[in-house]
Amino acid sequence: MSVVGGVRPTKGFLLEMKKRLSFIERGCEFLKLKRDHLAKELTVALDVLRGRRSKINEKLREIYDAIVTAYLALGPSEVRSQANSIKKTYEIEILPKSVMGVQYPSMKVVSKPKIEGKLDPVLFKAASLMMEVFEEILRLAEFESRAERVADELGKTNRKVNALENIVIPSYKQVIKFIQDKLDEEDLEELVRTKLIGGVIARRGE
């Protein structure tokens, strides 16, 4: 379907179209800036994530080893029983934060379980290692969610920029050109008509 269908080839409409085009071009520039910022943010986030993830994986392996040792030394029922003596669990507050207009959840530890004086030394070692890494896991989850949402927003922004650059702006330009051509044509017709009338009047005067 032609983009010029239903277009009124008037000067007023041409001015309106030009105004809209300039507004869209400015918006497109802003979106490109946002896209570049988000891409930069995502690259940094991915680098950090890779580093943190491997560190946490290493620590989790150590924790798993400590837990296996506790189970082998104390027996499954005893480990469960001792673990049950921990009264409180982690209390976490989740708040929304924003980067470049992209919202992501931010986690804050409100209270931690108290494990001192409650567990056998074998299990205490595993539990304290787990508690050390738990907050890092929360930070990692927060960071992953942030990276995921930034990547999502980057995709959306990219699609918007592409749509504006390849579809919206060219179609506006086409409409403007069509109107301009029409107006030029009308101007030329008017000129010819004026000249013809001028010639007729001149001949009548002779």
Partner: peptide, 19 residues
């Protein structure tokens, strides 16, 4: 009891035998 748990969790025999 320890061996049984180790087997259920797939703990290597070397680690089980250590404890």
């Amino acid at each position: 009891a320890s061996i049984a748990w180790g087997k259920e969790q797939g703990v290597p025999p070397k680690k089980i035998l250590k404890y």
